[in-house]
Simulated assay, not measured.
Amino acid sequence: MQPLKYLGAYSDQTLAQVTQLIEQNKLGDVLKQRYPAAHDVRTDRALYDYVQDLKSEFLRNADPINKVAFDGKLHVIQHALGLHTTISRVQGNKLKSKHEIRVATVFKDAPIEFLRMIAVHELAHVKEKQHGKAFYKLCCYMEPNYHQYEFDLRLYLTELDISGKRLWNAT
């Protein structure tokens, strides 16, 4: 069996439970039971609107997000579920920055909870650049189930690695 590369930071007990589900070929079933359907955010525009709604609810005073898109070039293998970039440009005597959020296209066919976790994570980078205590506190403020969704998303990536097939189909 392959190592559980997406779950390396979890306890031995947790890894044993996941390994047991994998050996019984039940990991995908557990995830499908927990998250029965894929979201309906199908286009870059719909993704932009979804992220903007989250931003306006939780980060009203944060810098604007200029672009949000699904990105087929993001590879989960490089541990990039999404990507937040800041592009700085000089305009006259001012330095202007633009924030962009990109989400790996593999999450077009995933539950809304996974998309929300990624969007919250990338939005948190607008305020907190580094993954620290303040960063994760902000993530949990925007999504109280952030850590559970992140864990389940890692389980899904593990299942995807093992089976090679997506659990949810586009609606």
Rank of each mutant, 00 (worst) to 15 (best):
Met1Tyr: 00
Met1Thr: 10
Gln2Pro: 04
Gln2Asn: 10
Pro3Glu: 09
Leu7Phe: 00
Leu7Glu: 01
Tyr10Glu: 08
Ser11Val: 13
Ser11Phe: 01
Ser11Arg: 03
Leu15Thr: 09
Leu15Tyr: 09
Gln17Asp: 09
Val18Pro: 05
Thr19His: 03
Thr19Gly: 00
Gln20Thr: 03
Leu21Trp: 01
Leu21Lys: 01
Leu21Ala: 09
Ile22Cys: 08
Glu23Phe: 00
Glu23Ile: 01
Leu31Ser: 07
Lys32Asp: 08
Lys32Phe: 02
Gln33Lys: 13
Gln33Asp: 14
Gln33Trp: 07
Gln33Leu: 11
Pro36Gly: 15
Ala37Ile: 05
Ala38Lys: 08
His39Gln: 13
Asp40Met: 12
Arg42Gly: 09
Arg45Asn: 13
Tyr48Thr: 01
Gln52Tyr: 03
Asp53Tyr: 01
Leu54Ala: 00
Leu54Asp: 08
Leu54Thr: 01
Lys55Phe: 00
Glu57Asn: 10
Phe58Leu: 02
Arg60Tyr: 10
Arg60Cys: 08
Asn61Phe: 02
Asp63Glu: 12
Asp63Tyr: 07
Val68Leu: 03
Phe70Tyr: 07
Gly72Lys: 09
Gly72Asn: 11
Gly72Pro: 07
Val76Pro: 08
Ile77Met: 12
His79Ile: 00
Ala80Phe: 07
Leu81Arg: 11
Leu83Arg: 14
Ser88Trp: 03
Arg89Phe: 02
Lys94Glu: 11
Ser97Pro: 03
His99Val: 15
His99Tyr: 04
Glu100Arg: 11
Glu100Asp: 00
Glu100Ala: 12
Thr105Cys: 13
Thr105Lys: 05
Phe107Ser: 06
Phe107Gln: 04
Lys108Asp: 08
Ala110Cys: 11
Glu113Tyr: 00
Leu115Cys: 09
Leu115Ser: 10
Arg116Asn: 15
Arg116Trp: 00
Ala119Thr: 13
Leu123Lys: 14
Ala124Thr: 12
Ala124Pro: 07
Val126Gly: 03
Glu128Phe: 12
His131Ile: 00
Phe135Ile: 02
Tyr136Asp: 05
Leu138Trp: 04
Leu138Met: 12
Tyr141Trp: 02
Glu143Tyr: 02
Pro144Ile: 11
Pro144Met: 09
Tyr149Val: 00
Phe151Cys: 11
Thr158Gln: 13
Glu159Leu: 06
Leu167Met: 12
Trp168Gln: 04
Thr171Lys: 15
